[in-house]
Amino acid sequence: MPPVSRLTALSTAALLTVGLAACSSPSPEPSGGEDAGSGNWTPVTIEHALGTTTIESEPERVATVNWANHEVPLALGIVPVGMAAANFGDDNGDGVLPWVEEKLDELGAETPVLFDETDGIDFEAVADTQPDVILAAYSGLTQEDYDTLSEIAPVVAYPETAWGTAWRDSIRLSSQALGLADEGEELIADLEEEIDASVAEHPQIEGSSAMFLTHVDTTDLSEVSFYTAHDTRAMFFEDLGLATPESIATASAETDQFSLTRSAEQADAFDDVDIIVTYGGDDLVATLEDDPLLSQMPAVETGSVVNLPGDGPLGTAANPTPLSISWVLDDYLSLLSAAADEA
């Protein structure tokens, strides 16, 4: 059923309990909310790729949709009333990733309502949680998704491109919407300090170039896909002291997409890549090494490949989020260091 049709199927009583998204004149930067929690709320206006959202009153019930947006409020001590169930990297099938479970335990909180997004956003489930704000700063919302969610509560969407919001910007946008901008900046500073300290313990990584190879079909290596510099996994490389290869930077400049596909016959374009990170098992690496074209890539030839489990938390955490960074940092850097040693 189309999203709008599903939403209109909600009862009138349910709709009356949720707030409507309010809009005001655009502002160049998010503003307001400085006195959150003091009873002196200042309306917050946030511009994003899908519109302008104003949060008129202090949100008490926070819902999040799409990947990892619940981690910002949790990191700031706020338990959402509802959030998307994990559909990738969930090690025990409960819909909650391990670093989120740890934070909920730390806060002494029960698991929020989990939205099943297997077939897209469950608008009825979101409305049933009666949110005051819906966070989706890191997401793939369409304009239709946004418009439908905005009938439920004010929505904070991504600033520029779908699935292209860096972890710092996710924290800034969501913390601003919650009236906790200063706390958001403190969270960013704490994570940066933690990252820098860990990176300093792995000096061999510094300056190595890396690409993230993805969606590799071991039965057909005629094409390979990779994440562009617009993807958060690739952005994270720079936090870890790695460099963006010129080949990836050039390809990324031609698109706003987070991934691209190239023919294996163009594999020599990646001769400037020192380290390859990818998802898969040992069979994937063996297949790359046996392929007459891809085996000529320097990173494959030297064995400088970080092979992350595609169905587990470690692979999932390569996509940095406010809570996963601390959870994965040391393990990820150790794998990258081992690959750098081979380069």
Rank of each mutant, 00 (worst) to 15 (best):
G241L: 08
A181E: 14
H215F: 08
F212R: 08
R172P: 00
P245G: 06
M211Y: 00
I188S: 05
L221A: 05
T218E: 06
I248V: 12
S225R: 02
T244C: 13
A251F: 06
G207I: 04
V216P: 09
Q176Y: 12
V224T: 08
A251K: 03
A189H: 07
A181N: 12
A253T: 15
D182R: 13
D190W: 05
E185D: 09
L180V: 02
F236D: 03
F226L: 08
S174N: 14
G184S: 14
E238H: 08
P203L: 04
T244D: 11
A234L: 04
D239A: 06
E223W: 07
L173C: 04
D196E: 08
L178Y: 03
F212V: 03
A243E: 11
D196K: 09
V216I: 12
F237I: 03
E192Q: 07
L187R: 07
A177L: 04
Y227A: 15
I248Q: 01
S208V: 12
F226Q: 02
R233G: 12
G179R: 03
E246R: 13
S208P: 14
A210W: 03
T218V: 05
S208T: 09
E192D: 14
A177V: 02
T255Y: 02
F236V: 03
R172Q: 13
T219L: 11
T250K: 08
R172M: 09
F237M: 08
A197P: 01
H215L: 15
Q257P: 07
E206R: 09
E246P: 06
V224Q: 01
V224I: 05
A197H: 08
T244Q: 12
T218L: 08
I171N: 00
D231V: 00
E183H: 05
Y227V: 06
A229N: 15
D231T: 01
S225T: 11
Y227W: 14
H202C: 04
E223T: 09
M235G: 02
D217S: 00
H202A: 06
D169Q: 13
F258N: 09
A253P: 07
L173F: 07
V216F: 07
S198D: 06
A197F: 00
T228A: 10
T219N: 15
G241P: 07
S252D: 05
A189E: 13
E185F: 11
E183Q: 10
R172D: 14
D231E: 05
L187P: 04
D169A: 10
E223S: 13
D231L: 04
L180S: 09
D217H: 02
L240H: 03
L173R: 05
D256I: 12
E238Q: 10
Q257H: 07
S247F: 10
D217V: 04
A177D: 02
Q257A: 12
E206N: 10
Q176F: 09
I205K: 01
S174L: 00
T232S: 05
A177F: 04
A229H: 05
T244F: 11
L191K: 12
S175E: 01
Q257Y: 11
Y227M: 10
L178H: 01
D239W: 10
L191D: 02
L221F: 04
S175T: 10
